[in-house]
C-alpha cells in the first residue's frame, strides 16, 4: 500500500488564519475555585484602598441601588485566576501551573515573533456580581492583525476575548456578566526601523 503523501506545509499566514476562533488553554471553561465572597472582596478593597461601601458595608449596600453587596466590577478577572502551584513557579516563567498544553501563540515564536507586549485591555460589564455566584470564563482568539511596523519592531496584534458567565440554575443557560478583550503584540525583537 502506498504511503499517503504528506500534506503540503502550511504557510505562516495559513497557520495564523487557523488560530482565529480557537480557544486559549484547554478549551473548557475556566471555573472560579470559589464563589464571589466577602473575604476576597475585602482583601481586594484593602489592597487598592478602595473605600466604596457597596463592596463591604451590608447596611449601605442594602439601601443602595444595588440592593445588596456587589463585587467590585473590575475584580471580574480575579475570580477565575488559577490557584497557583507556588513550587517551581520561577522555572515556569511565572506560569501558575505546570501545563502540557502548547500555547497556540507558539506559531508566532516559531516564526521569530518571540517578543510579547501587552497593548490593550477592554471590559464590558453587563452586570455586577453578587455574593455566592460562581464565575466561569471561556477565552478564544478573536482576531490577528496583518503584519504591522511598530515603534518596537514588526509584529502582529493578537486579540483574545474572554466571556465571563455565571450559572443560573440546572438546565438553564449561563448568564453572561461581562466580556474582556485583551490585545498583545507578538513582535520580532531588534526589528525596529
Amino acid at each position: 500500500m502506498a504511503e499517503p503523501s504528506p500534506p503540503p506545509a502550511a504557510s505562516f499566514q495559513d497557520r495564523i488564519d487557523a488560530l482565529v476562533g480557537s480557544p486559549m488553554g484547554s478549551g473548557t471553561p475556566n471555573v472560579a475555585p470559589d464563589p464571589v465572597n466577602q473575604p476576597m472582596i475585602r482583601h481586594w478593597a484593602a489592597a487598592f484602598e478602595d473605600s466604596n461601601p457597596a463592596y463591604v458595608d451590608p447596611e449601605f449596600a442594602e439601601s443602595s441601588r444595588f440592593a445588596g453587596i456587589v463585587a467590585p466590577p473590575l475584580m471580574l478577572q480575579t475570580w477565575t485566576m488559577a490557584t497557583p502551584m507556588i513550587t517551581g513557579i520561577k522555572g515556569r516563567g511565572g506560569a501558575p501551573l505546570p501545563s502540557n498544553d502548547r500555547s497556540p501563540l507558539t506559531v508566532f515564536d516559531d516564526a521569530g515573533f518571540v517578543g510579547t507586549l501587552a497593548s490593550n485591555s477592554e471590559f464590558e460589564i453587563h452586570r455586577y456580581l453578587r455574593l455566592g455566584e460562581t464565575v466561569s470564563a471561556r477565552t478564544v482568539i478573536e482576531s490577528i492583525s496583518s503584519e504591522k511596523t511598530t515603534r518596537i519592531g514588526v509584529g502582529h496584534f493578537v486579540t483574545w476575548v474572554t466571556t465571563y458567565a455565571v450559572e443560573t440554575g440546572p438546565g438553564e443557560p449561563a448568564e453572561v456578566v461581562g466580556i474582556q478583550r485583551f490585545r498583545i503584540l507578538k513582535f520580532k525583537p531588534g526589528s525596529a526601523a
Binding site: R65, P73, A118, N120, S121, F123, E124
Partner: peptide, 12 residues
C-alpha cells in the same frame, strides 16, 4: 458609591 461601571478601555 452608586455609580455603575459599564465599560473600561485601557491602552498600556
Amino acid at each position: 458609591p452608586e455609580a455603575i461601571v459599564r465599560s473600561l478601555k485601557i491602552r498600556l
